[in-house]
Design a protein around this nucleic acid. Structure first.
Lengths: 202, 202, 202, 202
DNA sequence: CATGAATGAGCTTTCATTCAT
DNA sequence: CATGAATGAAAGCTCATTCAT
């Protein structure tokens, strides 16, 4: 019989994750120290370690949460979209709008940093690779759908096009996260969308 | 041993830089400790600090050297290329081939990590920003040249297209550095080239 | 263990300061390494840095504490002393007795070393200069009081006489800290007292 | 058969010592690094170690040289002085004038620093103790001479008075080296002279 | 469960000294 | 003898993690 309710614990977990995202975003994953999260969240160091076993774990959970949120919200939107093209357009729109928030920009930056960081640690690599697959196949499926419906060219490899989508997105956000110019980000992203659609649409 | 030749010192410097690149590439900039470079280069810690004033300095010099090499070799090639389109094609070709080397892949990975890292430190930011400008304007000029010669569409913003080129490249290399699949890298890059050229050519 | 009382922390702070004084006294400020204080106090390096931000800070706090103690105890004694002469006599007596303790001898030695050391570092200089002023004006005021009451010669500059007092004291302790001969120290100090009083008394 | 003349070697030795004094004076003994002396003297590190076996040795030699110079010049002056009082007056005058030079002020400062430093190392202690004795007995002898000639009070202990002389001098220079106010130094020293003479003269 | 004091391995950088040339 | 590159043992300080209260 637990001493506190499950909601209470869930709330605390979330508070820690939110603080962690802010801190990681501001200082970077490696540069953030646990005391930064303590200061931001006003939750004691010991408590943080009650909820997460390590700094790495915090990051991983954060990533998981954001990933889940992305997929569930995308899934929700997709339900009302009639065809593959609308879905691709929606994704471009979504990344155009979403990245503009400071939170989202930082999340991506941290994601890239951690991605790089993880690539040298086998246990982390596996986690990141699975996540990668999930993202790739998600858009791959939309492309595939569009091919089947005759919207997109048939001779494209859906996986390849998906990789291209994500490369463009990651590259663009990487530049934006350094430059910080929102208008430029939106315009560049708009051009990338044109480039991409022009290439896949029949 | 003192009063050694300038070449000797240059060699030593390069040996350190090469070791550093290997180490940074394998473990990441932040995760690499000076002793890793000592172990890899068989050069003592003190000696390393005779050549470079800090770990940061080592990185910056490494970056400078690679940047200089890129521009001088590109300049050389460009001399024999008749038009802007050939130049853009050459750049795509170059990044297709060059990134395939382990060294180059790691260099880019380290570059991205440091880029992220530097964005929070004002003094480093300046250095990185200047380097960024240099790369952007380099391809911007080629685009501009192509517009004047009538090769490329006139209504494109050269700077934007340059940013798009670099975003695509950085995004693609980032993915490749994580996945490590050369064939996939080449194919994706090929498609990105098509996408890009199709968009800019009249 | 956390959420300890303020006294607990105060005790720990003091334990560190006491160890530091012992170490500084034995080996000198510059020659003392943090591990010496760790060894002497049996408090871990990390814990020491929880209480003080640097070795310099430890020294400065030590100085502050001793200075405060000096002034508050002197103030207390002064309250019951009827005239300026008694006060000057008291100060001579005090330094005669106090310096005899090993702790006090070492403190002065460390103080002088740090004084020398600080004179080349602007931020430290300021701190040390203020402390200097405070000591000088303290005795200057007593001299002044004695002049007004007619005890001391009127044509003396109180500040100068105060500087002379402290010069004699610092010089004498410096010699004593090197020689370590208590009897000699006391006798020399006695003579210096005579010299001084003979010069200021009407 | 040496390769170079003895004078050549002597010159180099002196050049090193002069640079060392400048450096020690500016930065302190402990804070001075060999490279400072290299930079100041333009003599290579290896060469310095040909002439001196360690940094400590450099200091000791410097001290020896200055001590010898002091005694030989004092001896020279003393020859023409008729009585003990003139000799004591001459010493006060000498320290009043001499300390005003930047070089001399720094030398004393370094001397005190090293004195403190040496007191914890047995081998150095011996050297410093001997030097101490020499200085003490030098003035002790003058006092003694004055007592025998009837100039000074008979009931004074010459050694004690000598210690007092040197305490006053070291204390005063210590303060001056921190404050750096020449006028104040001269005036304070003048008062100390009065104090001292008033006490010893019959 | 929460707290935050304690731990100590680990990091970057320094510098007296050595020694190959 | 002169040179200055090489060495590596320290030193000050950090910070993820633990655990007594």
């Amino acid at each position: 019989m637990p001493k506190v309710s499950a909601e209470y614990k869930e709330e605390k977990r979330n508070a820690i994750l939110e603080s962690a995202l802010r801190c990681f975003g501001q200082k970077g994953y490696q540069a953030t120290i646990i005391d930064d999260i303590v200061a931001d969240s006003k939750i004691s160091k010991g408590a943080i370690y009650n909820y997460f076993s390590s700094k790495e774990e915090i990051y991983l959970q954060l990533l998981q949460k954001r990933t889940d949120e992305f997929f569930s919200s995308a899934e929700e939107e997709f339900a009302s979209l009639p065809d593959a093209l609308s879905k691709v357009r929606f994704l471009f729109e979504r990344f155009r709008v979403q990245e503009l928030t400071e939170e989202s920009k930082q999340a991506t930056r941290v994601y890239i940093e951690f991605w790089l960081f993880s690539s040298r640690q086998d246990d982390l690599r596996d986690v990141m690779e699975q996540r990668y697959e999930r993202f790739i196949s998600y858009i791959g499926n939309v492309i595939d759908e569009g091919q089947k419906s005759g919207e997109f060219k048939k001779d494209l490899d859906p996986v390849r096009m998906s990789e291209i989508f994500w490369s463009m997105r990651d590259g663009n956000v990487l530049h934006y996260s350094f430059l910080g110019d929102q208008t430029k980000y939106e315009q560049t992203w708009k051009v990338l969308e044109e480039l991409f659609l022009q290439y896949i649409i029949k």
